[in-house]
């Protein structure tokens, strides 16, 4: 996978999550557990789907393992690891 692939910044992730949760993105801490902030399973499915359709290599399970902006930024950012493997 070369560097022309799309990537998301932590700010963009917070914007997307904030829109889904109807909360201000700047109030989302990098390490906050997004499920505890109210993120529902179906909403996580939609985020995963939207990001996949935009060309990112991401799936529900990877985002579900550690639902925090910091963890997601590692998988979705320009220096990303790719899908989690166990």
């Amino acid at each position: 996978m070369m560097t022309n692939a799309p990537a998301l910044t932590p700010e963009e992730i917070k914007q997307a999550v904030g829109a889904v949760l109807s909360i201000a993105p700047e109030t989302i801490d990098d390490d906050a557990n997004l499920a505890q902030l109210g993120l529902q399973s179906i909403q996580l499915m939609r985020l995963s789907g939207r990001w996949r359709r935009s060309g990112l290599q991401v799936d529900f399970a990877t985002l579900a393992v550690d639902p925090t902006v910091r963890s997601w930024a590692r998988h979705l950012g320009p220096e990303r690891d790719g899908p989690a493997t166990d």
Partner: peptide, 20 residues
């Protein structure tokens, strides 16, 4: 079920992952 007594917020997300 997701809101039952003793539930944690990530229960449904975890259940979906386990189902996967």
């Amino acid at each position: 079920w997701a809101e039952r007594p003793g539930a944690t917020p990530a229960d449904m997300i975890t259940a979906v992952s386990r189902f996967g």
